[in-house]
Amino acid sequence: MSVLQLHRSLYSADAIQAAAAAYAEFADAITVTESEVEYSVTFTAPDPDVPELLDAFANHVLFETAAARTA
């Protein structure tokens, strides 16, 4: 299990959901919980063949967040 923390004021929930859908095949489950300050994205049984999964996921969320602000 791996966890990625993303600050609520910097990443959008929709962007995280979009990234979770795009990366669904790389983990048994990707779940998102939120606290007052951040989102926690938990990857259950992440694909061991993708060593930089969380990094790529974070880039994808950044891209989706930026895309939503440009549109």
Binding site: L6, H7, S9, Y11, E52, A56, T65, A66
Partner: peptide, 18 residues
């Protein structure tokens, strides 16, 4: 900040925090 960071996604892993 988003605009600049986004242009580096091909070369870097990017993380924003506050």
């Amino acid at each position: 900040i988003y605009g600049a960071a986004y242009l580096f996604v091909d070369r870097c892993w990017l993380f924003l925090d506050r």
